[in-house]
Amino acid sequence: MSTSAPAAPALATLDWGRTGYADAWSRQEELVARRNAGEAGDTLVFTEHDPVYTLGVRKGAEEHLIWDEAELTRRGIAVCKTNRGGDITYHGPGQIVGYPIINLASRKDLHAYLRLLEQILINTVGTFGLAAARREGKTGIWLGPRKIAAIGVAVKKWTTYHGFALNVDADLAPFTGIVPCGITDGTVTSLAAELGSAPSAEEVKRVLALEFSTLLPRFFAGL
């Protein structure tokens, strides 16, 4: 059995529909184990989560949760600590979450992988007429001071999991219950807020999958 888990010739795509966060995390870890065992190829998973705040491994992430337990219960928002990078963020309906399960053994460069995810999101948002960009020293994708997509990843034996969350037509109110990603000099936005009406989730996922298929081979080629 190969121990290097070489890159698959094509990127498979799965759509899990709406999921609970804990269940999706468990299913990701199963895919990671299969990828590292050579039993599956690279896979891009799409899902939409039930309302949840997730906390990354960054120190002090818990301090950026503003709403108390009573308010969380009233609004039906769960809280989950994770092992991904980054701070605290919100997932909920109207947001496309992408979990790339990709083995990086042939290019062990996590920083370059993060830049890949950023470029995929920039290109995707650009397809719908918005000029998104990176912000120096901050993760995610931005339209000026407004964050439209969050990124937080983890790796196990050089296979990636967790990933990104792109606000398509999400309720943005829950972001006021946290300091999103620990950022105090910006706000959160969505495709719907910027465009007046959002493209369909299916169309956005189609564009995301196309960008992955186009840019991932260039990533592995070191381009």
Rank of each mutant, 00 (worst) to 15 (best):
E136N: 13
A112D: 13
Y90N: 03
A170H: 02
D109F: 04
S106H: 03
R135V: 06
T159W: 05
A149H: 01
I178R: 09
D15H: 09
T176N: 12
R115S: 08
C80G: 00
G56H: 04
G137I: 12
W142H: 01
T160C: 01
D42R: 01
R18E: 07
L55R: 09
A61P: 08
V52L: 12
A149E: 00
A165P: 07
A12H: 10
P93H: 14
V179K: 07
P180A: 01
F164I: 01
L110H: 06
A221W: 12
A70S: 13
S26M: 06
R107H: 04
A78W: 04
E69Q: 15
G129I: 00
A150W: 04
A105E: 11
T124V: 10
A192L: 09
L223K: 15
N103L: 00
D109Y: 05
G140Q: 10
G76T: 09
K156D: 13
T19R: 14
Q28K: 03
W142N: 01
A154C: 09
A154H: 13
D42P: 02
E29G: 02
W158S: 04
K157H: 14
I101F: 03
D15Q: 03
A7E: 10
A40N: 02
T184C: 10
K138M: 15
D42L: 07
K205N: 06
N167G: 07
S197N: 03
G60M: 05
V79D: 02
D50A: 14
G98C: 06
W25F: 11
R75Q: 15
G196S: 06
R75D: 11
R27E: 07
L172A: 14
P100T: 01
E62T: 10
G60K: 02
G140A: 04
D169P: 01
L65D: 10
V45Y: 11
A165W: 05
A33D: 06
F219K: 05
L44Y: 02
T189L: 03
V52R: 12
T13I: 15
I122A: 07
N83C: 05
T54G: 14
I183H: 03
A10W: 15
Y21T: 08
G85H: 04
R107N: 03
G38S: 13
W158T: 01
E118R: 08
T124R: 08
G56W: 03
R27Q: 12
A173G: 01
D185A: 13
N123S: 14
Q95N: 05
E63L: 07
G98W: 06
L208N: 07
A7L: 09
R206G: 13
F212D: 00
W142L: 00
V207E: 04
A173Q: 10
R35Q: 09
R18V: 06
S200H: 04
T89L: 07
A133N: 11
R115Y: 00
R27V: 00
F220I: 15
R35C: 02
A201Y: 02
L191D: 12
L72N: 03
G60T: 05
T73K: 15
L11A: 13
L65G: 05
T47P: 11
H49Q: 14
G86C: 05
I148Y: 11
A154R: 09
A24Q: 07
E194F: 06
G85T: 05
A105L: 01
S197K: 07
G140S: 09
G76I: 14
A78L: 12
L216E: 00
G76D: 12
A105H: 13
A173H: 04
A154D: 06
I88H: 05
